[in-house]
């Protein structure tokens, strides 16, 4: 029975990782109706920034536990610098264009950032594994898991809880929900949609960067690491229903579990298991599991 437990644990860890990335994507789509391909680049930027900061921190001989602060700092920095830069500097000129054109705009941003990352950090891999091993490991069902993975699950739950609370309980959250539901009416009611967009995009960028920063200690940070993440996060968000937070959570869980089961029982189908799930879900529920309401055009 240990096997099933391993499938579930692996699935949960993978789902948590996916959720942190997907929630930012769904947030940006929900509010701004932009399917942001550059999300993968933000993820990579977060990873690179984290690798650089943690590397500096450790080589300066400071307390290793401070490296966790560096991971978070990296994500915040990337969010605050890159988010506003791209939203104010580029995207705001594009609002009102077709959704697909906006996808292409972010694709262009993605291409540019890919090379920009290469110009800044070079093509060599970076890695900072210290934060990964620092917390030790624990044994479940005869298998060893690093505590860091458990921490990832906790972070992911915190992010989810924070979103749920913020949207339901705070004024800002309610304003955000209003903009998601109807941008025009919200603007008419006096909500500063411009500001909401800026904050949303910055927050979304920060979440992608958090995903990257938290992943950095477990991988080697290399060019191209963002490409794979994008489509995966897309699949999650589409399965869950674009723009839905609950959907992002459920989508992550489904994709994580399916992938984990595939790896354990049928490694051969791992490569397209995610897409197969996406196709099945979309065929059964054409707008994803949690569909947003849409006005019908007459």
């Amino acid at each position: 029975m240990g096997h099933v437990l391993a499938v579930v644990i692996d699935g949960i860890i993978y789902s948590s990782w996916l959720f942190i990335i997907a929630v930012g994507l769904t947030l940006i789509y929900g509010v701004m109706k932009i399917l942001n391909l550059a999300h993968g680049s933000f993820y990579a930027l977060g990873a690179y920034a984290a690798a650089s900061l943690v590397g500096r921190w450790l080589s300066a001989g400071r307390a290793p536990f401070g490296s966790y602060a560096m991971l978070i700092l990296a994500a915040i920095l990337v969010g605050l610098v890159v988010g506003p830069l791209i939203e104010r500097g580029l995207l705001r000129f594009m609002y009102g264009k077709d959704e697909i054109v906006l996808v292409l705009v972010t694709y262009a941003v993605f291409l540019i950032l890919e090379d920009a990352i290469k110009l800044v950090w070079g093509v060599d891999a970076y890695f900072v594994s210290e934060p990964y091993g620092l917390l030790g490991s624990l044994s479940i069902a005869g298998l060893t898991y690093p505590v860091y993975s458990a921490a990832l699950v906790v972070v992911s739950l915190l992010v989810g809880a924070a979103f749920a609370l913020a949207l339901k309980r705070t004024r800002q959250g309610k304003l955000l929900t209003a903009v998601i539901q109807d941008r025009e009416i919200s603007a008419a009611m006096g909500i500063d949609v411009r500001r909401v967009y800026l904050v949303t995009f910055t927050l979304g960028t920060m979440l992608a960067a958090t995903g990257g920063a938290l992943t950095a200690p477990t991988v080697s940070v290399v060019p191209g690491m963002g490409v794979e993440v994008i489509v995966l996060a897309f699949a999650v968000v589409v399965i869950g229903g674009l723009g839905s937070f609950a959907g992002a959570a459920l989508g992550s869980l489904i994709v994580g579990m399916v992938r984990s089961a595939a790896v354990h029982y049928l490694p051969a189908v791992e490569l397209f298991s995610v897409y197969a799930v996406m196709a099945v879900v979309l065929i059964a529920r054409p707008k994803g599991l949690f569909r947003a309401l849409e006005a019908r055009k007459i």
């Binding site: 096997h3 692996d10 860890i13 794979e228 490694p267």
Partner: peptide
Amino acid sequence: QMPKLLSGQYGAEISALLS
């Protein structure tokens, strides 16, 4: 195990190897 190129997350694969 045959994970996708550049998938980066090998948690489940490692469990499968270990078990």
